[in-house]
């Protein structure tokens, strides 16, 4: 190990992970902050702030996950599945709350 740029993994897989970590992780943290703002038992502005306070920990964890995952594909799936799930629930709550 510790031969990062000459590792058996193809270079494209490394690039894919970096993109997943930086942008995918950020997107996941963003969706998390929206989703959790629906759940927190506080008034809207405070719920948004409260959810965002946690989102930076989610971002950090997401980056760690991306580089810990066995493959780049798994890394992406690990971001996309919870992201899509939280996104869908947040959307449902938004629509449900507005109705």
């Amino acid at each position: 190990m510790s031969v990062p740029f000459a590792s058996p993994r193809p270079r494209s897989a490394l690039l894919s992970r970096i993109v997943a970590a930086v942008f995918g992780g950020y997107a996941l943290a963003s969706v998390f902050s929206i989703f959790v703002s629906h759940l927190l038992p506080a008034e809207l502005p405070e719920a948004v702030l409260g959810a965002t306070l946690f989102s930076f920990a989610v971002y950090t964890a997401a980056i760690v996950w991306v580089f810990a995952a066995a493959s780049a594909t798994r890394a992406w799936l690990g971001l996309l599945i919870p992201g899509a799930l939280m996104g869908a629930l947040a959307f449902a709550l938004q629509v449900g709350g507005a109705a």
């Binding site: 703002s37 502005p45 948004v48 702030l49 938004q94």
Partner: peptide, 23 residues
Amino acid sequence: WSIYMPAGILARYAGDEDAFFAK
């Protein structure tokens, strides 16, 4: 926080930061 992670304000307050922070 509101610069780095504006998603909540964008999604829940339509990005109206002034109204958000006033509240």
